[in-house]
Amino acid sequence: MTVLLLAAVSGCSSAKELPNSVGSQLQTAQDRAQSAGFTNLSSEDATGQGRAQLWDRNWRVCSQDPQPGEADPETLVVFSVVKEGESCPASTDGYLAMPGDEMPGYVGRNLMDAMDQMAALTGEITAVDATGAGRSTDNENDWRVCTTTPVAGEVIEDSVVFEVVPNQEKCPG
């Protein structure tokens, strides 16, 4: 019985580091994953339209499953993608806002989560105290979004403003 257990343990794959490919061109994402030892790769249209990815260089990764980090290299890695120039659905896990995307609805959500999804923008991303009291919003995890500029559904140009209050407070108005 010990021999069988040893054989089963020795047959296990050791975990490898799956790189983060969100925001990358699909071809680049596949190349990175393969370089890291992952060869079981797939992609799907993140819009739900079922479009085939014939030219990998014409698609951008909105999310990946599994998430970046340690994973079994035999695991199926699925990249959810949109055509270059299209917006990623805001509901996509791992969504990163890009200029030209529609602003997701962040009202009521945690500021840190909202700021994380804006990390790919190159313009100014600011958070201000919605009460006008001028309190520092440095501890992003303790604040909640009241309003955004642009508002949900409007196109993100390059900068975003979050008006926020501490989690235990109500939004003004």
Score class of each variant (00 low, 15 high):
residue 6 L to I: 13
residue 14 S to R: 13
residue 31 D to E: 12
residue 128 V to H: 13
residue 55 W to R: 15
residue 66 P to K: 00
residue 45 D to G: 06
residue 52 A to I: 15
residue 170 K to L: 15
residue 27 Q to P: 04
residue 93 D to V: 05
residue 144 R to N: 13
residue 9 V to T: 11
residue 43 S to C: 01
residue 160 V to P: 07
residue 32 R to N: 10
residue 144 R to Y: 08
residue 43 S to Q: 00
residue 149 T to Q: 15
residue 34 Q to W: 06
residue 27 Q to C: 11
residue 122 T to C: 08
residue 149 T to I: 11
residue 8 A to R: 15
residue 52 A to Q: 13
residue 116 D to G: 09
residue 30 Q to L: 06
residue 43 S to P: 00
residue 33 A to P: 00
residue 136 S to F: 01
residue 11 G to K: 11
residue 38 F to A: 04
residue 24 S to E: 07
residue 25 Q to M: 10
residue 87 S to G: 10
residue 87 S to M: 04
residue 119 A to W: 07
residue 60 R to P: 01
residue 3 V to Y: 14
residue 121 L to F: 11
residue 124 E to P: 15
residue 51 R to L: 14
residue 146 C to R: 04
residue 162 F to A: 06
residue 40 N to W: 03
residue 48 G to A: 02
residue 122 T to F: 08
residue 134 G to W: 01
residue 142 D to V: 05
residue 38 F to C: 05
residue 78 V to L: 02
residue 127 A to C: 09
residue 160 V to G: 10
residue 160 V to K: 06
residue 139 N to I: 02
residue 105 G to W: 04
residue 43 S to Y: 02
residue 49 Q to C: 07
residue 36 A to P: 09
residue 71 A to C: 02
residue 105 G to N: 13
residue 63 S to G: 12
residue 27 Q to N: 10
residue 102 E to C: 02
residue 13 S to C: 10
residue 1 M to A: 15
residue 99 P to H: 01
residue 108 G to A: 04
residue 136 S to I: 03
residue 68 P to R: 03
residue 136 S to K: 00
residue 145 V to F: 08
residue 10 S to R: 14
residue 122 T to N: 13
residue 37 G to P: 02
residue 84 E to R: 15
residue 160 V to W: 07
residue 48 G to N: 03
residue 2 T to K: 15
residue 136 S to L: 00
residue 110 N to P: 09
residue 128 V to K: 14
residue 149 T to N: 13
residue 128 V to M: 12
residue 140 E to Y: 08
residue 146 C to G: 05
residue 30 Q to E: 12
residue 121 L to W: 11
residue 15 A to I: 07
residue 26 L to V: 06
residue 168 Q to I: 12
residue 55 W to F: 14
residue 10 S to E: 06
residue 77 V to N: 03
residue 3 V to F: 14
residue 114 A to K: 15
